[in-house]
Design a protein around this nucleic acid. Structure first.
Lengths: 221, 221
DNA sequence: ATTTATTTTTAGACTTATCTAAATTTTAAT
DNA sequence: ATTAAAATTTAGATAAGTCTAAAAATAAAT
C-alpha cells in the first residue's frame, strides 16, 4: 500500500492536472503542498519507481493509469466522507475538509462500500463535484447551455452548440475561452439577456441567443 | 498532538496496566506491540519527556494522569467506532478491529461528539467494555454474583461476598484467582448448581451457595 | 547568441521510528 | 554471596520524509 504522504502527493498531482493541463511542475506541487521543491523531487523519484507517475528530470510529471486510479480512489473516499459529515453529523462545509483529509486515508474496502450505500450512492457531492464510483469511474456532469443557469451561479465553459465561424468569432472577440469561469451577475426578465463576468473580469451583457449556445457545467471548486 | 505511534504505545500501556497491575515492563510492551525491547525503551524516554508516563530505567512504567487521560480518549474513540461499524455498517465483530485501530487516531472533537450522539451515547460496547465519556470517565460496570449469569456466559472474577477464611480456603483449593475467567458450561435447574470452567481448564461443579458469593463482571475482551 | 533569471535537482543533514548487537542492570539460583 | 540467567538499556545503522544550500538545466531577455 501507499503511505499517507504518497497518497497526498498523488492527489495533489491529480488536482493540478485537472485544472492546468499537460504536465505538472515541481514548483506547482511544492506550492500546493506547502513544502519545498527539493522534497517534491525526492517524492517524484519514489512515485516514479512505483510506476504511479511518469517522470523525467526537469520535464514535469503526469499520472500513469495506476496513479490515476489511485487518485480517483482517494478522491472517492474524500468526497463520500464529506457527504457523510455534512448529511449525518451536522458538519458545515468549512468544517468538513480537515477531517475528510484524515478519513480519506483509512484503508478498508468494506468501509467505503458501506459508506457509499449508507449515503445511497451519491453521484456528486454538494459542491457539485462528481464522486468516482467503486471502479474509479467518474460520472461526468453533462454540460448544459448557460441560458439554463441563474443569477449568482458560477460555471465553467465546456463547449458550444453553434459551431459557425461567425459565432466563434464573436466568442473570441469577447474573450471567451474553454475552461473560463462565468459568473451570472444579473438577468433581464423581458429578454432573458444576461450580465456576466468572465474569469472575474469586468462584466458585460450577452443575449439569450448567445447564452443558449454556450455549454457550461456548474463550477467544481 | 501525539503521533499515531505514541498513541499506540499509550494504549498498549493502559491495557497492560488494566490486566496486570503495578508497573508494566519493557518486554511486555514489546510483545504486545510486536516490536523489539530496544524500540520500546526509546519510546518510553520520549513519552516520559512528554510527561505521559512515569519511567525510571529498569523499573518499568506507569501512566501519568495526563497519559491516562490520553489513553481513555483513544479507547473512547476506538469503542465508539466499533459500535458504529457494527450497528450502522454491518460489520461483524471480527472485521471491526483493524478498521477501528485506524479510525481511533482521527483528530476531531466534533467528529467524536457527533458519533457519540449518533449512537445515542452508549455506555458499553457490545463486548461489555465500558466506553469512556467525553470527560474520559469510565462508567464501570458493577460486579454481580456469578449466580446471576447464564449458560455460556463468560465473566471475570472481581471479588467475593463472603470473606470468611473457610470460603477463601475453598476458593484457593479450587484454584480461583482474581482476574480468572469463568465460563458457565451448564446449570442444574433443581438446585441451581453450576458446571464451570476456570481459565479454560477442565470444568467442575460448584453449588449455588458458592456462586452467590463469587463476584464477577461480564468478560471484557 | 550570450547572458540573466528561474526552475529543478543533487548533496548532505536532521527527525521519527525502527532494528541488531553489545553492554549493563536486575533477578534468580546455587 | 557469587554466579548464571533474564530483562533492559545503549550504541550505531537504516528507512521515510523533510530541509538548506549549492550545482545544474531550462527558459527568458537582451
Amino acid at each position: 500500500m501507499h503511505s499517507f504522504t504518497e497518497e497526498n502527493y498523488i492527489k495533489a498531482i491529480y488536482k493540478l492536472l485537472e485544472s492546468n493541463d499537460e504536465t505538472v511542475s515541481t514548483n506547482a506541487i511544492a506550492e500546493r503542498m506547502n513544502t519545498k521543491a527539493a522534497s517534491v523531487t525526492d517524492m517524484l523519484k519514489k512515485l516514479s519507481a512505483k510506476k504511479l507517475v511518469n517522470y523525467q528530470k526537469y520535464q514535469g510529471v503526469t499520472l500513469t493509469a495506476k496513479g490515476e486510479k489511485t487518485a480517483l480512489n482517494i478522491i472517492r473516499k474524500h468526497r463520500l466522507w464529506e457527504m457523510f459529515l455534512v448529511e449525518k453529523f451536522n458538519f458545515t462545509w468549512d468544517e468538513v475538509h480537515d477531517v475528510a483529509e484524515q478519513l480519506e486515508h483509512i484503508q478498508s474496502e468494506k468501509l467505503i462500500d458501506e459508506l457509499d450505500k449508507f449515503l445511497n450512492f451519491p453521484k456528486v457531492d454538494p459542491h457539485g463535484d462528481p464522486i468516482p464510483d467503486a471502479k474509479g469511474k467518474l460520472h461526468l456532469q453533462k454540460s448544459k447551455p448557460l441560458s439554463q443557469f441563474n443569477i449568482d451561479d458560477v460555471c465553467v465553459i465546456t463547449g458550444v452548440v453553434d459551431h459557425s465561424p461567425s459565432f466563434l468569432r464573436y466568442l473570441d472577440k469577447q474573450g471567451f475561452v474553454l475552461g473560463n469561469e462565468i459568473k451570472i451577475k444579473d438577468m433581464a426578465d423581458f429578454d432573458r439577456s444576461l450580465q456576466i463576468s468572465v474569469n472575474k473580469r469586468a462584466s458585460f451583457f450577452i443575449s439569450n441567443d448567445v447564452a443558449k449556445n454556450i455549454l457550461v457545467i456548474a463550477k467544481q471548486i
